[in-house]
Design a protein around this nucleic acid. Structure first.
Lengths: 341, 341
DNA sequence: TTGAAAGCGCTAACAG
DNA sequence: CTGTTAGCGCTTTCAA
């Protein structure tokens, strides 16, 4: 067993005493607010170093009404997408001089209404909201409080004007489907939708439809099924298609994660990819290149999106304003699952 | 452009006023400290609800000298290992009623000595320290301050007694190598070490050596190279072996990540896996099952380790003590890269 | 069972 | 350029 006993830590008063100045002066050299004689400042810095003094964040926050902390609300953090985004966010926050407080809303456990929101105006200077991790009522309340927020992969409710960052989903999938049609002559291209209400998925579908229309291919709702950005759901949907004998010569999976599930279903059914059925995804997650065959997909700058979102939030906090929308460019990544190579 | 203007939020005084009681009473019902008449409490709760009052974390922290926040220090968060661990930690923290403050030390940018530590006694109630994300001097300072800490995947400096959680690395790799030798008759088994000083890697190597010794196979240092728990390094090391014509009939990669790099090198060199050279890893990261061939490995309960660490830290904070060591069991996962199936 | 009041450590006027 | 002082919003004795 380990038994710690907390000792008292030096406060700003200790530093002031050691340096022979007032606490106000110490505060000034720490925050670089107001003028201090270089000689005095040097003494203060020396005292800080000797005492290994670190300002108490809570006290500072109370007095200044700033926490120097960004809050992140997201559904889960285990998938590759979230992990990459998180990395970008952490980077952006740090660059801006902010800490990062994280709360995953997933597996929240229905502990009744008592599960008070853990991240908000009381402990952060602003919030990064991923997808639907915060409901519209709360979004509205915070907005009207003037609380800084940036949305990731979801647009602002119409009546509010919360800035948002996401990808160029539509043009990305348009290029992808164009390729399938033009380079590989596919005509019966199925689409695995993302989760209900997911905006990335919505725009990817729009790009898909646009590509079909541009090539005079009919839109067939029998070729649309739920992939849910999830391996299992995608597998199940593809198995259903195969079981029903739906005629398909290519599958566009709403994201790479679902693409893996589709690949498994195809392989189990003895279909050759891409000879019998081509397969393409979206995101270009790490694994994609290691699948057999390697997955043709669209690279989404996930990490960059996170970083950009954090930057915008910092800007919003500091200056009170930022551009309402950032659309990060996507890029086609040709590998073998589409029929190339 | 979006322009927020911050409005004032309700304080405990507003709640007290609305409920017709003193702030002390409000504090009592919120924290369930001290007796309050049920009738009074009901009124207070009503006032809190009407005002949508949320206690101010900083003020609370200042007064109570507790932040209800756990700090996490880790090198990076993009890899699958860290992501899984993070998920477990987040879960454990939430279960204990704590927030999670994260700081990734990776890519810290040599912004001079000015990069003051962002996580510590001043803004958290305890620290979760992964690998070597905090140097020994700081570990020592905090320990002598009586500051609660739990180490992940590294043991405590000898003179301190900081609790730690990690895997049963040695027995895991022992089983793995036994399998390679006994089931597949491999004799020239190479090992790709993890990063310098990594304890997980150290014990995995011990298990490897133990297995060789148990089967009277010689230990050959020419069969040891640096994998660095990294794809590129592993690939390079395997290419070197192959280029030098070192005789090898199996490769034990210190972790799955490096295993991917090894697989790539093997395939580029035209080696068949597992026929020419068998390949096994450690961790059982998500991708491993999708490699071709699927990777035989040892499943490490990464998420569980994170959760357990958070739990222990909470326990340490609350009770002042916790068991010094937790070794989570590992399990052999047989797939095809070892020669099975 | 409840209220009054003293801080927690720091920032930010306001004097000097 | 530097010190004094009044809070920031809450917890926590100590009385009542």
């Amino acid at each position: 067993m380990v038994e710690p006993k907390m000792l008292l830590r030096p406060t700003i008063a200790d530093v002031a005493g050691r340096a022979g100045v007032s606490i106000a002066t110490v505060s000034r050299v720490i925050n670089q607010t107001g003028p201090v004689a270089e000689e005095t400042a040097a003494q203060v810095r020396a005292a800080i170093a000797e005492l290994k003094y670190v300002p108490h964040a809570a006290a500072r926050g109370l007095a200044s009404r700033r926490t120097q902390t960004l809050g992140l609300l997201l559904p889960g953090i285990s998938d590759q997408f979230s992990a990459a985004m998180l990395r970008g966010i952490e980077m952006g926050a740090r660059e801006g001089g902010y800490d990062l407080l994280i709360h995953s809303t997933h597996s929240e456990g229905g502990s009744g209404p008592s599960s008070r929101r853990r991240l908000g105006e009381h402990n952060t200077d602003g919030l990064l909201v991923f997808i639907d991790s915060l409901d519209e009522a709360e979004l509205t309340r915070l907005y009207h409080l003037g609380f800084p927020m940036v949305l990731l992969h979801r647009s602002s409710p119409a009546s509010l004007h919360i800035p948002c960052v996401t990808f160029e989903n539509k043009s990305g999938s348009r290029k992808l489907i164009d390729h399938l049609i033009e380079a590989h002559g596919r005509q019966r291209i199925a689409f695995l939708r993302g989760p209900e209400g997911n905006e990335d998925s919505y725009w990817r579908e729009m790009g898909y439809r646009e590509a079909l229309a541009a090539h005079n291919l009919p839109f067939d709702s029998a070729l649309i099924a739920l992939g849910g950005f999830d391996q299992e759901q995608a597998r199940s949907s593809v198995e259903t298609w195969l079981g029903q004998g739906v005629e398909i010569d290519a599958i566009f999976s709403g994201d790479d994660e679902a693409g893996i599930g589709a690949l498994v279903a195809l392989q189990r059914a003895g279909k050759r990819v891409p000879e019998d059925i081509a397969l393409v995804g979206f995101d270009d997650v790490d694994v994609s290149r290691y699948l057999t065959p390697p997955l043709t997909t669209v690279r989404a700058p996930i990490e960059q999106a996170g970083r950009e979102a954090a930057r915008k939030l910092v800007q919003l906090i500091k200056s009170g304003q930022t551009a309402p929308l950032v659309l990060l460019p996507t890029e086609l990544v040709i590998r073998r699952s589409c029929g190339c190579g």
